[in-house]
Design a protein around this nucleic acid. Structure first.
Lengths: 200, 200
DNA sequence: CTACCTAAGTTAACACTGTTAGCAAATGTA
DNA sequence: TACATTTGCTAACAGTGTTAACTTAGGTAG
């Protein structure tokens, strides 16, 4: 009696088909060109079928946003685990954050693009907490290692993230002729400055 | 023979009418809801009239973006002029940058919102150079004051701007329950950390 | 095996969007 | 007064997200 299972599977197939088609369009032509109609065309179903799987277009974007936060959290965790000293962890995590952003520009723009619908409802995204907790815990460990526990870890966590995000997003909108090596120098300089501010 | 003058004046009136109506819509309902048709409706002219003054919708957004950069540059310059020591200038400019962003969220989102059309063509905006040169000159003066001229001023300028932008934009998407005082503490902490990295 | 019912998927529409071709009228010039 | 130019209009094209109403196919119960 695998009937309901087969139906479930089929439903899941359509869902992944929608996301796959949508993602393909996003990577090819950017967020602006994502359209329900074009998705329907790509998956060879009629338009309302999409609304059986997602409440609206924003829900699809939100799905990708969540995916992005998960991937970012994973990348940060992996890089963190590759070294032991908190001071080093902050450095490799910065590189990982940077690489994630530039290897997944579409994700990053969706996650942090001001004014984009999906970023406005960031409070509905629980996946963001995963990333936050990795950053916070590393900062706390770093402050303990530096014997600087009187510093406000929340303040420092926010500073760390802001530096990363600022560097990444300004480079992203500038797309100047700078080499990647130079860009990473800016990153390393800013992070080592931050580490000094932790008394590391 | 003030005929051409009168015509010019009339043309200018329509232009400012378009921008005024557009701005009103933006402030009231956000960028997403800006529409050529609604502008036409508001200024009580037909749709194609708008295309006599602006090539397309993006051109209108670009206009606001330029305005935003000018206002920001002005705010930075004024705050810079209010104190004499470069170290202090970096601090007051940070506050001014912050205040501009939160008192003009619409501008800031348009200027730096990743993925928004008007930000993609940031290279066509000459007004951005005004802001850049203020930041760069202050950083250079600060490095001279700190007798730290071997530091790469371009690197530091980028770091300074990135910290500001990162702090601002992350606070903007988070809109958490933090008080304004606490937010500014994060800002001051980050900037004083940055100043230390200049050897100030 | 037929009758029924539910769920899947369809068509067709509504209410919008940016943009432009073609036309009418108003205006200033010769 | 006749012409030319600017000015503005209507109406259309080609899209967009979204949904109401219908058809049809699949599985279930008598």
């Amino acid at each position: 009696m695998g009937i309901v299972e087969r139906k479930m599977r089929h439903k899941e197939e359509i869902r992944t088909g929608i996301l796959g088609a949508a993602w393909h369009m996003v990577v090819t032509d950017g967020w602006q060109s994502l359209s329900i109609r074009k998705i329907a065309d790509a998956i060879e179903y009629s338009i309302p079928v999409i609304y059986n799987h997602f409440e609206n277009k924003e829900a699809i974007l939100l799905e990708f946003s969540k995916e992005g936060y998960q991937k970012l959290a994973l990348a940060l965790q992996e890089s963190k685990d590759s070294v032991t000293l908190p001071a080093d962890q902050l450095k490799v995590m910065a590189i990982a954050y940077w690489d994630f952003a530039f290897e997944n520009k579409e994700y990053y723009q969706l996650m942090f693009g001001l004014g984009i619908p999906a970023c406005e409802m960031v409070n509905q995204i629980t996946e963001i907490k995963e990333m936050t907790s990795i950053l916070v815990s590393t900062i706390r460990e770093a402050l303990i290692q530096a014997k600087n526990e009187e510093a406000d870890y929340f303040l420092k966590y926010h500073g760390y993230w802001s530096i990363l995000h600022g560097l990444v997003s300004i480079q992203m909108i500038e797309n100047s002729g700078k080499t990647d090596a130079f860009k990473k120098m800016i990153l390393k300089d800013a992070i080592s400055g931050f580490c000094r501010s932790l008394a590391l």
